[in-house]
Amino acid sequence: MAPIIEAHKLTKIYDKNKVVDNLDLKIEEGQIFGFLGPNGAGKTTTILMLIGLTEPTSGSAFIAGFNSTREPLKVKRIAGYIPENVGFYEDLSAHYNLMYTARLNGMPDNQATEAVNLALEKVGLKDRAYDKVGTFSKGMKQRLAIADILVKKPKVAFLDEPTSGIDPAGINQMLDLIKQIAHENNMTIVMSSHQLNQVERICTHVGIMSKGKLVVEGALSQLSRKAGGGSIMIDVQLAEVTDEIISAIRATSGVIKVERSGDVLNITCNEDLRRQISRVIQEKGGLVTQMKLRTLALEDIYLKYFKEA
């Protein structure tokens, strides 16, 4: 299957400044793609080029096979976009703002009303539907932006910093909402952020941008393995640690290193050996209280690639 979002050698130059530099990107349908990078890395510019709001200096972008520069209207019909600092008409009600979006997308009024009411209910703004948006808090406006996307129901949604400026509880609510609508509507989501833990929470795939280049890209699980240098860490907590158990584990094929800290053993191996390790421990009469595969946190990956870049 062809990827739903595709970029070929996408480049944008502002005053001799390469903001986006020969970017190649493929995003498959159904992914929640986290677009990471420090401020000024070129995330927003890339998104703008992908949906055809900015013309690339060179290279091309496609959404569902449509060229974003040459067929912007077709792209805009299937792609939704929430800019950072999303704005609504402050003097108009939330309901009217969303109806406007629906009408602009060519929905007849009765269908639009239904979609708007559903969307407002989904994001928990039903009670405030007829209040002016000017009275809304930042978090409510961000939720209204999600409702805006829900009314349009695009195949692909681009969210630029959807969690900026809202409180921690609001952020969690927001992330859950994004994840939920993506699943319910089979929507592909591209979300830019510099909050690593947020991206980690809901994204299936990430791309890290730095100085206009995509430094690394892939599924979160794969990335953590790659970043760890190909090895896997397993933490085992035992009721009682004996030297016999440790040496038995060391003798297991594939195990590279075993370190002990208190009742926990940190085992480094070149593949997932949880099954073998637990069997060895059992044979030696040990009791496993806890065992987990340690994945490298996104922060570790992020920092690792930034040291390299």
């Binding site: 949906i51 709001l53 209207l73 805009k76 019909r77 792609a79 939704g80 976009y81 929430i82 800019p83 999303v86 704005g87 609504f88 979006t101 602009l104 997308n105 060519g106 805006d148 349009k152």
Partner: peptide, 8 residues
């Protein structure tokens, strides 16, 4: 920017 990202 929200307006021009609609099919307009």
């Amino acid at each position: 920017s929200r307006l021009v990202s609609q099919p307009v």
